[in-house]
Design a binder for these strands. Sequence first.
DNA 1: CGCCGTTTTGAGCCTAGTCAATGTACGTGG
DNA 2: CCACGTACATTGACTAGGCTCAAAACGGCG
Lengths: 224, 224
Amino acid sequence: MQVQTTSQASKFPAAAFGLRPPLAGKSPTGIQMVLVKGEELFAEGDQADFFYQVVSGAIRSYKLLSDGRRQIDAFHLRGDIFGLEAGAEHRFSAEAIGSATVIAYRRSRLDSLIQDDAAFRSRIMTATLRSLERAQDHMLLLGRKTAQEKMATFLLDMAERLSKDDEHFELPMQRSDIADHLGLTIETVSRTLTQFARSGLIRLLPAGRSIGLCNKMALRGLDA
Amino acid sequence: MQVQTTSQASKFPAAAFGLRPPLAGKSPTGIQMVLVKGEELFAEGDQADFFYQVVSGAIRSYKLLSDGRRQIDAFHLRGDIFGLEAGAEHRFSAEAIGSATVIAYRRSRLDSLIQDDAAFRSRIMTATLRSLERAQDHMLLLGRKTAQEKMATFLLDMAERLSKDDEHFELPMQRSDIADHLGLTIETVSRTLTQFARSGLIRLLPAGRSIGLCNKMALRGLDA
DNA sequence: CGCCGTTTTGAGCCTAGTCAATGTACGTGG
DNA sequence: CCACGTACATTGACTAGGCTCAAAACGGCG
């Protein structure tokens, strides 16, 4: 991992990842970290001394069962803040999916910011409530949707989050990550994608990472 | 529904549901509501002008798919706060499971309380983060646990939340609620309980609502 | 006592999982 | 530049856990 402090506004491209004052305005000191593929940022149970914002690449945060089964609760893409905890410890592990860059903020700074700054506080509260909303939507998906519906929901969400034209994008993660996010197996993920491609709903480019949505209406129908 | 304002301490049995000052101390005006079985408090999409705290009974909050499939994201028991939203609208529906009593608080009050009162603020923040934690644990359950593991987790959680001795309790909800909470069908819930009873893990009293845990060790083992 | 909502039990099926083999992309080193 | 190795994705055959459909049992309550 390469580390580089970013204590000046010039090194803190706030606009690039959606920060507005006061967080950006106060240009809090952050540590920029360059992560290689698969590198772990923190593990479940670690002290939560830092929280993070994605600059580039993608991060997966997940929980494990004792026998290794994994549930990826979220993928964090450019601009997303993650790793902010109520208690002293992280309740998730987090790893870089490919190579990625994040900025780490000391949590101690956060606490004082929360005390002092009503606007910042409400931003954190909103971010937390947004995570809760996502979690609630995802519970509906995990508990009650079929494999096809899960994949359709996932593809539409990804298109929205990482496509400019909302139609074509590169998946940053591999099949096993998608499977562990949707509560499926890699085989089912793969089969469902092939099936979507054969039905003309999507276009799958070589390596299976590049995806084009041809029929968003139909996908939305599957989204239930 | 019977409504009764509770602006005085005498009508606000704070100790009974775990409230301590400043919320109780300031005795904020709440509206006490007595709900009959199945009565709806609010629906997904309603204006979120109130949030609630359970005084007695149990509330289910849930989302529906277009064809009626339901996911119950949480059961709210005595003392729990729920219905607090980031946006203007409720993101799920909430109903009384049996007859229940709740206190409704105006959300507008909340905002001013949050402004003024650091202790109250941290209580709301903690409650929100606790919901998030529960949601995250529940995603792991829904996505990756087997039917037996789901039931074991559920029983241990319920024992902790509504049993005094941690061993024996009355389930406030019926099988279909449990099923929609765990991502199963009522038949699977019933079969799994019978199986647990036959294995001597639990004792099932008539009507299937009263449950005693005979072998918590073994249940914890299944909890994965 | 008899009705109705709920739970339990049974039989058979189906979706998604498992196990296994093949295919494909890409990076490394000869 | 090509051969090989590795990691990932796809495909196939088969299995099984949990679902569906159906019926019977139970309990609470009028």
